[in-house]
Amino acid sequence: MSKKDDKKLIVDMISESEFTVQGHGVHTAFVEMTNALKDRNDIDIAVNKARLDADIVHAQTTGLYSMKKMRQSGGKKVVSAHVVPASFIGSIKGAKLLEPLARAYLRWFYNKADLVLAVSDYTKNELEKIGVKKPISILYNTIDTAKYANSPAKKKSARQKLGISNDAFVVVGSGQVQPRKRVDVFFNMAEKMPDVEFVWVGGVPFGVIAAENGAMQRMMNNPPKNLKFTGVIPLDDVADYYRAADVFVLPSEQETFGLVVVEAAAAGLPVVLRDISDYDTTFRDGAVMASSDSDFVTQVDKLRRNKKFYSQQCRLAEKIAKRFDSSAGAERLVEFYRSLI
Rank of each mutant, 00 (worst) to 15 (best):
R305I: 13
M193D: 12
F257D: 07
A210K: 00
S174E: 15
Q299T: 03
G90D: 13
L97E: 14
Q217E: 08
L117C: 06
F88T: 03
V232F: 00
Q299C: 14
E18V: 15
Q299F: 04
D53R: 03
Y65V: 10
F206D: 14
V26F: 08
T123R: 04
F88H: 11
S91N: 12
N226E: 14
V47P: 07
K8H: 05
A215K: 13
G63F: 06
G75H: 10
P251H: 08
N226L: 02
D236W: 08
K129V: 13
S292G: 10
N125D: 14
E255F: 07
D195G: 02
S165I: 12
K322W: 04
L162Q: 04
A190M: 04
Y122Q: 07
M289L: 15
V171G: 10
G207T: 13
A168L: 02
T28G: 01
V47M: 05
F88M: 02
R40E: 15
D53L: 10
L9Y: 10
F186H: 00
M189I: 08
V272F: 11
E253F: 03
A317V: 09
Q72A: 11
M33H: 14
D295E: 07
L98Q: 00
R182Y: 09
D121I: 03
R243M: 14
Y148W: 12
M189Q: 10
V116Y: 03
W108E: 10
S326H: 03
A146E: 15
S66D: 14
F248T: 13
Q178V: 15
I45S: 01
T145A: 11
L273G: 08
S151Y: 06
I89A: 06
K38Q: 03
D12F: 02
D275N: 09
F309V: 08
D44Y: 06
A95W: 07
V199I: 15
S277D: 15
D325E: 09
V261Y: 07
V260C: 09
A190N: 01
V249L: 12
R107W: 09
A267I: 02
G23D: 13
F229N: 12
L250M: 15
A244P: 04
R305G: 00
M70T: 09
Q72R: 09
A95P: 15
Q160V: 11
D278H: 05
V171E: 05
Y337N: 06
T298G: 01
K161G: 02
D280E: 12
V57M: 01
Y122P: 00
Q254F: 15
D295S: 02
V26A: 04
R338Q: 13
V116W: 10
Q217F: 00
Y242C: 05
A317G: 13
N141W: 12
E212G: 00
V172K: 07
A50E: 05
K192T: 06
V204L: 12
D301H: 01
F248A: 03
R332H: 07
A215C: 01
M33W: 11
F88D: 08
I164Q: 04
A104G: 14
F186T: 04
